[in-house]
């Protein structure tokens, strides 16, 4: 899945379940459209439930945008592995990737909607996090 409008903030969906991650990405594509770079990852390296840092790094690369990338995660390990992946990024990219404190499905749709209007990374994160506000 590659970007058609590289100026918009990219969205990465990280779930323990690849089905949830893929399904959430389908919702984003159907509801928001193709204007936003989007990638998803889910499952551990053996194909079971879980997340893995390499998969998250690959997803960040796929959804990369000069405007940055917002990551939506589900539970515990998805968040810590995402933070670990961010730390492993080259220094010039690290500050342009943010993990959102938002529900994974709803947050992904809202973040993508915000991004599709050309909003900057901080606004995309803030909008996704309005769900818990």
């Amino acid at each position: 899945m590659s970007s058609l409008r590289p100026g918009n903030v990219g969205i990465v969906i990280v779930s323990h379940s690849p089905k949830i991650a893929e399904g959430a990405a389908d919702m984003v594509r159907q509801m928001v459209g193709d204007a936003v770079p989007l990638a998803w990852t889910g499952g551990d390296v053996d194909g079971g439930l879980g997340t893995n840092v390499a998969g998250i790094l690959e997803a960040i690369e796929t959804a990369w945008s000069p405007a940055g990338v917002a990551i939506l995660v589900d539970l515990g390990g998805a968040e810590t592995n995402s933070e670990m992946a961010v730390e492993m990024l080259p220094e010039d990219r690290r500050a342009r990737v943010l993990v959102c404190n938002a529900p994974v499905v709803e947050g992904a749709v809202i973040a993508a909607t915000e991004s599709s209007g050309g909003s900057p990374l901080a606004a995309v994160k803030r909008s996704a996090e309005e769900f818990y506000a």
Binding site: Q30, M31, V32, V109, T113, S116, G117, G118, S119
Partner: peptide, 14 residues
């Protein structure tokens, strides 16, 4: 609902 809300927001942002 969700999908129309997204469309309305996207249009408004233009």
């Amino acid at each position: 609902h969700a999908r129309p809300s997204v469309k309305l927001t996207q249009l408004a942002k233009r």
